[in-house]
Amino acid sequence: DDAADGEVQDEADVKADETIDESGLLISASPDASVTFLFTEPVGAGETLELVAGRVTKFLIGFANRGEKDFTVHFSHTSFRYPMDFSYHVQNFTAARYQRTVAPKQEATFDFALIPNEAFIGRPLGLVVEVHYSDADNVPYVSTAFNQTVNIIEDESVFNAESAFLIVTGIGFVILLLLLGQHLLSRFTRKQPQRVRQYQETGTGKSGDLDFEWIPKELTSEKKSPKMGSPRQRKPQKTN
């Protein structure tokens, strides 16, 4: 790797505490600044290095000024990196702007929260948290607060809709089976007396039940219709 040849230097060659800004300058941590890091959510993530997908991950960044000059903390930048090659950014989170001045012998705490995407479940990812700050002479510095591989795990603690529906369906199925079983058992074990049919629908066969009162009287009074015969036989009847 001869930099004098004019070839572009690979970012992967840069040590953990150093980054290259857009102008190509190497920015490193200030020896007067001490940066600490603590996961507050999920509890114990600092030891297990496991983040829960879909749930909020919170952490605190402590910044201590051990020098003689003021430091101004501008922002923190959090990103997920490809664990085999930390120069490959998988996801960049929005930088958290702080813009706070930390006087000499003073300390400040900053926080950031992120939600790991559920697409990363079961995958190791490099989590890198950088703090960007400058001193009173506007010299920029970058400190790496956290730089380790974390595992993204599935959220198993909470109620999720899928399992709830499965449980409800299961309960319904069990109840259905019980009802079916009870029905079959009662059919085979008990001799049921034959039910006596009290009434059977016979349609309009018996006309006694019919209520013709709504029809005007003159229409319902039965008239014997004349016997149908040949017109020849009828004629003499009329003349008589």
Binding site: Q106, E107, A108, T109
Partner: peptide
């Protein structure tokens, strides 16, 4: 804004330290 906390960093420390909280 941030709250301030002051503390002595160990049992025999003479100098008090100030830490500011998140805001």
């Amino acid at each position: 804004t941030a709250a301030a906390a002051s503390y002595f960093p160990n049992e025999n420390a003479k100098e008090v330290r100030v830490v500011y909280s998140t805001a």
